[in-house]
Design a protein around this nucleic acid. Structure first.
Lengths: 341, 341
DNA sequence: CAAATTAGCTTAATCGATTTATTTTTATAT
DNA sequence: ATATAAAAATAAATCGATTAAGCTAATTTG
């Protein structure tokens, strides 16, 4: 009951394994193998359910039909949705996914890249932490296709799919200003990743335009949610004058709502809120919370399209694409959204 | 600048590749290779950063150091958290993860199992849909370790890690009864998976005990959330007499809250709610929603522990474990939780 | 001191495919 | 009938590791 190999097939049919291989790889015509033989082999293979050993195949051809997907944290709803969509599209195109969560940890990520190389993944989809420029550069130099998303490495010239982060927070902040809010804070994770810097800048630009002073809190990420909530609580206690806040990520936003619940701060009565990313938590909050919705499907679609294109052009040197998608400000809780002093 | 192979190392050091291989696999002592040579090889390998080609290694040894993880849907927070925890533990033990979402689709799952076999994964972690008994049976027959979680296949004798589903809903329903609710509904996805049947049974048992009649709505799963919300809305419109409801999964629960929002039904004023799974949506709802919290970390821990144990005992035939963990009923919104007619 | 061990390495087979180079068979032209 | 070209299939090399079996020189044993 052992697994069948191509030799078994060849022996059984009394042909050479070369012939079987050619037929199975659709090169029968090209190698002018007789139609009757092709038929006979195909039928038998079908009958016994033979499937080539993909390890052996990969070893010989150098292709593994696998894509490495590196997200920040697969349990974060944003990355989980993206992963799901990418998974679907990848499978449909004959690729499997190996994934991992980087935790934005540079050292861990470098090890993971090395692991992926080791496994000979054909292409890389990465939401990169800082500090992996050299490793990515090396991948590119070795002709391996890399697509980044959510953020990019400014010093590395590769394809990436992002959203218009700066405009998103700029627009959200302006929305608050137009509603009459005057003390608008910005709470985010401490990070110098491109998307974070841009979100911060968008907020600051909007405030500057209206000559308001920025009030920013950058929280150091921690696995333990308590360590996020505590400093945030301190921040809001200290800045009692704030009447609105923009949260830089869904995670910060969710924690923020928890803080407000604990402190008895009413949203949006006492504090207007806009969070990055739009999820059930924000939709179902009462009244619902305004949020910056990322076009998750579009992001995933673009990422996989760009990667597949690279995988299919062996030459490699197609020019790099930078795709910037638009977000959608979901304005909610409008009834009480207008600030009335 | 090509990738180094063991032959390159051997040639460079003017020893045979066998020797190099033995040394790298820690069999130097056993194969009585001189200490100085061991040192020389180790040092050189370190220096040039040589890493064995894992495909070749897997082809030869039959081990791929990969675990296949099959969840229902990686974008569902329950599965995403589990996946994250399993990923961490697996990496720590030298295993990589290939994952996929089954969508509870039998045919798709069978193809995915075949894909995993193809890639020679060493072990399987599966949240199984119905109808894959034969495939799993075959895996077991071929000596491949399989651990199931969240549910199991009654006809297949393999390890699994679950929670006490029946007691969980029984307990939740009794809680509602004790609070004075008299018309308690149960809304869930239509499914005959073990965990779903048990959850339903727990609800029915509790009602029977108090001689109440069950009011059940089973919704056919659909990728499009609208197709879940619509029938649910019809159900609640039809059963205006309901004063409480138990939701069978987090997804149904979230949709339920959306329905109540739309219909203007106050929770828990007009309708007391208990949902399976405990997530931010329920915690942050105002007032927060009572939920049945699964011990996600414990589940993941047990799953990976059982699997690793199986992977490390080549003989295979360790007796199967069925691990049943306890859930935690997170009682919330107590202030308005007591039903006062 | 010859025979038997043992230490220290190497040769060659193997895993299961793909692919290049080559041979055998058949058909066509001269 | 024979040389030549085309068609059909195969042998053998290769990918990069692991490992069983084998060889040589040094050491031990009787």
């Amino acid at each position: 009951m052992k697994k069948l190999s191509i030799v078994d097939i060849a022996n059984e049919l009394k042909v050479s394994k070369t012939t079987v291989s050619f037929i199975l790889n659709g090169r029968a015509k090209e190698k002018r193998i007789g139609e009757d033989l092709v038929e006979r082999v195909t039928k038998y293979v079908e009958e016994v359910g033979y499937k080539p050993n993909s390890l052996a195949k990969s070893l010989r051809t150098g292709k593994s039909n696998t894509i490495g997907l590196m997200v920040e944290d697969i349990s974060n709803p944003f990355f989980a949705s993206i992963a799901r969509l990418i998974e679907d599209r990848a499978y449909k195109n004959g690729y499997k996914i190996i994934y991992c969560s980087t935790d934005n940890d540079t050292q861990k990520t470098r090890e993971l890249i090395s692991m992926f190389r080791d496994r000979h993944v054909d292409g890389y989809i990465i939401a990169p932490p800082e500090g992996i420029e050299d490793d990515v550069e090396q991948l590119l130099k070795d002709g391996l296709p890399v697509v980044m998303f959510d953020r990019h490495l400014p010093k590395v010239n590769t394809d990436y799919v992002e959203i218009d982060n700066l405009f998103s927070t700029y627009n959200a902040t302006r929305h608050l200003i137009q509603q009459g809010y005057k003390n608008i804070g910005f709470v985010t994770f401490a990070s110098s990743q491109t998307q974070m810097l841009a979100r911060m800048q968008g907020y600051k630009d909007a405030l500057k335009e209206s000559r308001f002073a920025p009030v920013v809190k950058e929280i150091v990420f921690n696995q333990d949610e308590e360590m996020i909530i505590k400093p945030m609580m301190a921040f809001f206690k200290k800045h009692q004058d704030l009447d609105a806040v923009v949260f830089g990520t869904n995670h910060v936003g969710t924690c923020g709502l928890k803080v407000f619940n604990t402190l008895g701060i009413k949203v949006p009565g006492d504090m207007a809120v806009i969070s990055f990313d739009d999820y059930d938590v924000f939709k179902l909050y009462s009244p619902p919370v305004t949020a910056i919705a990322q076009p998750v499907e579009e992001i995933a679609d673009n990422v996989i399209t760009v990667l597949l294109k690279k995988l299919n052009t062996k030459g490699g040197s197609t020019a790099s694409h930078s795709i910037i998608l638009k977000t959608n400000l979901q304005i909610r809780g409008s009834s009480s959204g207008l600030k009335i002093d």
